[in-house]
């Protein structure tokens, strides 16, 4: 067993784990964070995408011990405490960016990373940025629309007068 400590969704956690434990297993089975799902288990589908030290990773393809000392953010802390959705979550709801919803946690976490790096992507850039995430329901069209809409929402929020910001 190996001792690991990390910050997950803004809380410090410490555990003894087997070195072979995958990060996604650690999140789901040790911490109960089942918002992050396991889709293909072969690092193809991207459903298990979380952020490790601020960048998107496939958590089925990272060992928990590799994340030792790091910061992990999952879909579970994306919305505000009062339930206000993150702009990307809001956009997926508004644009019907999901049907069965299984790929959605990964799609949203990858979209957040994409928009962090490129706040104003073209449709082509969105499609390329999501190439590591598979959806078997929607044909991707509404997912791409959602990400473009989220970019617009974030731009609108940034341009809004201060008094109408998040504290209003």
């Amino acid at each position: 067993m190996t001792k690991i400590s990390m910050r997950v969704d803004q809380e410090n956690v410490t555990d003894d784990v087997e070195p072979r434990m995958l990060l996604v297993q650690y999140l789901r089975e040790k911490l109960g964070k089942t918002g992050t799902v396991i889709g293909c288990d072969t690092s193809n589908c991207g459903a298990c995408t979380v952020h490790l030290n601020g960048r998107s990773v496939k958590s089925c393809n990272v060992l928990a011990v590799q994340a030792d000392g790091g910061t992990v953010d999952t879909i579970e802390r994306l919305a505000d405490d009062d339930g206000t959705l993150h702009p990307v979550q809001e956009a997926f709801r508004e644009c019907h960016g999901l049907q069965c919803g299984f790929c959605t946690p990964g799609m949203i976490m990858q979209s957040v990373d994409l928009l962090n790096e490129n706040p104003d992507p073209t449709e082509e850039e969105v499609r390329l940025g999501l190439e590591g995430n598979l959806c078997r329901c929607t044909g991707y069209h509404n997912i791409v629309k959602s990400v473009l809409y989220a970019a617009q929402l974030k731009k609108d929020a940034a341009n809004a007068p201060q008094s109408e910001g998040a504290n209003a």
Binding site: T49, S56, V57, K58, V62
Partner: peptide
């Protein structure tokens, strides 16, 4: 190479 998530690791 692969996709964005893989390129991060």
């Amino acid at each position: 190479v692969a996709d964005a998530q893989i390129r991060h690791r």
